[in-house]
Write a protein that binds this DNA or RNA. Sequence first.
DNA 1: TCAATTAGTACCGTTTTAGTACTGATTAAA
DNA 2: TTTAATCAGTACTAAAACGGTACTAATTGA
Lengths: 136, 136
Amino acid sequence: MLKLSKMTDYAVVILAEMASLDGQLLTAGALAQHTKVPEPTVSKILKLLVKQNLVASTRGSNGGYTLSKSPNDINMAHVIMATDGPVTLTACVESSGQHCDLSDNCNVKGKWNPVNQAMQNALENVSLQQMIGGRA
Amino acid sequence: MLKLSKMTDYAVVILAEMASLDGQLLTAGALAQHTKVPEPTVSKILKLLVKQNLVASTRGSNGGYTLSKSPNDINMAHVIMATDGPVTLTACVESSGQHCDLSDNCNVKGKWNPVNQAMQNALENVSLQQMIGGRA
DNA sequence: TCAATTAGTACCGTTTTAGTACTGATTAAA
DNA sequence: TTTAATCAGTACTAAAACGGTACTAATTGA
């Protein structure tokens, strides 16, 4: 259906909440309350975001999470990468690492690459700032 | 993972084959042989394409399938619509018809619509002709 | 030492997807 | 008019992906 996973959907909601309370260190529990997303899920998503360096974590008592960069510098392609992995429309896309069974006699070999790139670009051009309503 | 289904992938390969033998009436069996896609699957996909009026069918003995319009007039958005349904990145997208649990307190409500539209446009701008290597 | 908090991993149930099978309808030709 | 070829439609099954949860380990402030 060409849709994003719920994980990505939630991730953006969570990031938007963090952006709107910029600078504050927020626990997974607090973010769950604010966004109504179940806490274990919030927790899981935050871990993914930390791995991609979109969010910075502080461990231990009084720990929590905060954005690791400005909302203008976080784009949707990056968020999707964190939660869903790389954008690879088809198995034939070069970057997919997958093997296409038809490859030898495939009449559209390589043709998906530019389409994939167009998608990627479209997503890179949408910042978290825009998702929370800002103009920049 | 933001990927297309195999059905869409196959559909494009099948359509490309039809385009390259333009005007010929081809049976599901023949297309299966040419593309190496299993025949029952080819058959299923062709039915979906007929419903979306991308392909015209002729029933009965000596029947078969042919493109119902020029490869320049068939775009990837339309093919995806046929095999995967409409492009709706998230449940929140207006056209999705789905309900979003978070909607009332969602801080990114409505913000996905333009992103979704950008995707749709990117796919509409890729014709079947381009997928088989043509410039137009 | 204790409590709060994140990190990491593993698991399970549900949903989606891919693929197949079967029956019915249509048509050309013998 | 009968037969064979072919598409139309539906229903079913097995496998994979996804969402969600649980549990244990590591870290840190008090």
